[in-house]
């Protein structure tokens, strides 16, 4: 069952084509990687998928919690559709604690109104209790529970990356977009992260798209790879075929 279909997607910034003519279908439960040299348009593609940029032309269709087909999405509605993401350059809420960061991820699962929040009616306590319990569970999975009251800016780098994933998961997504989750991690941390991604995918029944430069991670867990170069999709297939693809080798090593 396909859950994401991208049709003829274009995005240009003032005449410069950042992403052009992308066609892609992603099936439910897949874990796919997007690779390509720096500046190939990978993050722009994520920003198009999450409504941060509007496409110049083309269409994106999600079949998740509900079927949505639009040329553009509002970023804040993506979690409602079942899409959550992390960012390449870590965008945590720096002056909020670890727990509060994940509670923001849980935002749309809270169901009580402004009046209840102002007068702390019973729905406030019920919701906050449930939210805290579920978020606590997540923090334990990610080994962050002991640091739940630490300000997120004071976490070491690797744990900040993990916290961002936990925050995204708190929104209960069907599709998780990870933008360079292993960037800046050492080999050991990357190995651990690989295990974690595999585990959460099964545990939470997720489809995952990840952008990554770390080939060991990509080859290890991705079932399918998409290769971007100069904003175009130049190759797709399983990791073995991609490794042998001459176009891909050329894009990475340059020249004839």
């Amino acid at each position: 069952m396909d859950m994401l279909v991208v049709n003829n997607l274009y995005k240009s910034f003032g005449g410069v084509k950042a992403v052009s003519d992308i066609n892609m279908t992603i099936d439910e439960g897949e874990i796919v990687g997007i690779i390509g040299p720096n500046g190939a348009g990978k993050t722009t593609f994520f920003n198009l998928l999450t409504g941060i940029y509007n496409p110049s032309s083309g269409d994106i269709v999600y079949k998740l919690k509900e079927e949505v087909s639009a040329k553009s999405f509002k970023p804040f509605k993506m979690t409602k559709y079942g899409v959550a993401r992390t960012f390449q350059n870590i965008r945590l809420f720096k002056d909020m604690t670890v727990l509060e960061n994940v509670l923001i991820g849980y935002h749309n699962n809270f169901k009580y109104g402004i009046l209840s929040s102002i007068f702390h009616l019973s729905s406030y306590f019920k919701n906050e209790k449930k939210g805290n319990e579920e978020v606590t569970q997540l923090l334990k999975i990610f080994d962050l529970y002991d640091k739940k009251d630490t300000l997120s800016k004071n976490l070491p780098y690797g744990e900040q990356r993990k916290l961002e994933i936990a925050r995204a998961l708190a929104s209960k997504p069907k599709l998780l977009l990870l933008d360079e989750p292993a960037a800046g991690m050492n080999a050991n941390e990357t190995k651990e992260l690989t295990k974690l991604i595999n585990w959460i995918r099964k545990e939470f029944d997720l489809t995952i798209i990840l952008i990554e430069h770390d080939m060991s991670l990509v080859m290890d867990i991705c079932e399918k790879l998409f290769v971007f170069d100069y904003g175009r999709l130049i190759a797709q297939g399983n990791p073995e075929s991609i490794q042998k693809n001459p176009k891909v080798i050329k894009a990475y090593l340059g020249g004839e």
Partner: peptide, 16 residues
């Protein structure tokens, strides 16, 4: 508070 901290991340987490 999340809006104050990082508006884009807040939106991505579903904050209107």
């Amino acid at each position: 508070i999340a809006i104050r901290e990082d508006e884009i991340a807040a939106e991505a987490m579903g904050v209107n």
